[in-house]
Design a protein around this nucleic acid. Structure first.
Lengths: 264, 264
DNA sequence: AGGCTGCCGTTTACACCGTAAATCGCCGGG
DNA sequence: CCCGGCGATTTACGGTGTAAACGGCAGCCT
């Protein structure tokens, strides 16, 4: 039903709305000198995106900011909390994305679609950071699947309930939706990471010398061209649309469906 | 309509058929002496399950085995590869699971269902390890979504193709299936981890003193009972069944439902 | 037997990590 | 003028992964 921005490739390399983070902090004119929690978090994200997560070190991050490691501790309690801040910061980029709305003013399907693409854009923009988002324990543990930002959970639930979902259905939808997003994007990002980034393979001859013996897996070998195809964008779209379809059924029947009889 | 904590989760804490690890290793009577790659990996899994991933240290693992850290390096190239081995080892438990078959002798739906539950059992048995499975870069990078074990990928594809799926459909099914599994189980495991295990919250009073101010999120607060419900088993079942339904449609139509020509 | 040779585990050593504590330079207000 | 405090540095410590040298012990060959 929903015809989103169809056509070419959607989400890849745009900061688009920008959305560095939020807040005014200091005067916009003051650029360089002062250290600052937001500057630190930003530098950390940038660092992880470039050099990977395990390369991020308090000392190195300090150096990257022209400062000694210990200086960071004035703004961040420790490394672990730094990473929490990074996650939070990255998620906050959603708020700066003009294509993502906080309320379902154009219908819940539009809302979910925009949100999904917004998250996907973030994931693709920070492939090294995203596993962190998926992995790190949440701030509000009792929210069953944690989208990590209570504000977004609130917005999500409100949007669906306002659109006619029952409370139970809204919660169920939230679960299905976040698990779909997480799984899909984590996989997509991890495969993207392999494509380019190494851990530089230190061995001499770069080509040839196929790693393991594949002769035991003829089907895998035969389907290699298919398996190595990257259709993640289309797959994402399709799976998302299917999910929306499911939710629509739930909405209409007012209840979670017992069995899939997807005669659309 | 299900009672609060229903007992009917099939996958929780049973080795059921066992599949503890596999293999006899050395003589069962000999407890202590010989070091061994499999013993090391086993100990590492056990260690992570008990104390968490970041508590795993070469030195500590060594001590746990009654040995100095450096001794491990004779069997494992380094910490990173140790973790790879752990992942591989955990996945190998599938082979010891009598409820999971390598071929679709009772139909592809049965095959997928058993496989999914087998993986879920593993995830629930090793909640601390599973994020590692989901996160770690794969052995065969070019397999688009990596199930991490080529043998299982092979088995998966063969099963579907033998059941009448086209090669394209089988690959598409593989992608949808693994992304579903990953997302669902990662979320389920992470919420399970919160339930019991801390990072022990160091503060004195355990109850009261709600962490953040929730007054800004009334819907979240109001739906808290629903949100904190744990219906993961039922949800898993439902989502899995829906996926199977989708795949059945694909099978019948013999094609992945794509709208326009690829044209590229 | 004696000696040689591998294997396996230990010892030692080093660079680097996160972070607690003391220290220092600097700056604006009494 | 002092001076109190803020923001950054210096120093220090225990822990980490791992390279390299070392030790001892088993089994083989002559």
């Amino acid at each position: 039903m929903t015809e989103p921005d169809e056509g070419a490739d959607p989400d890849s390399p745009e900061g688009r709305g920008g959305a560095a983070s939020v807040m005014p902090a200091a005067a916009p004119g003051s650029g360089r000198a002062g250290l600052d929690r937001r500057r630190i978090l930003g530098a950390a994200i940038e660092f992880i995106d470039r050099d990977g997560l395990n390369a991020l070190t308090m000392r190195r991050l300090g150096a990257h900011l022209g400062v000694e490691a210990m200086a960071l501790y004035r703004y961040v309690p420790g490394r672990e909390q730094l990473l929490d801040g990074v996650v939070e910061s990255v998620i906050d980029e959603l708020y700066g994305d003009p294509d993502v709305h906080l309320s379902a003013s154009h219908g819940w399907q539009d809302y979910l679609q925009r949100l999904a693409h917004g998250v996907r854009r973030i994931a693709l923009a920070h492939p090294e950071v995203f596993p962190l988002v998926a992995t790190r324990p949440p701030a509000a543990p009792w929210v069953r699947p944690p989208l990590r930002s209570l504000r977004w959970v609130e917005s999500f639930l409100d949007a669906l309930i306002d659109s006619g979902f029952s409370e139970e259905s809204a919660v169920a939808a939230y679960r299905a939706y976040s698990s779909f997003l997480l799984g899909h994007l984590l996989l997509e990002v991890s495969q993207k990471g392999v494509k380019i980034s190494p851990d530089d393979q230190p061995e001499g001859v770069p080509a040839a010398a196929e790693s393991t013996d594949l002769s035991a897996y003829p089907t895998v070998v035969r389907l290699e061209p298919l398996l190595s195809l990257d259709e993640s964008a289309a797959e994402f779209e399709e799976a998302l649309e299917n999910l929306l379809g499911r939710l629509e059924i739930v909405l209409r029947e007012g209840r979670t469906p017992r069995r899939a009889d997807p005669r659309t």
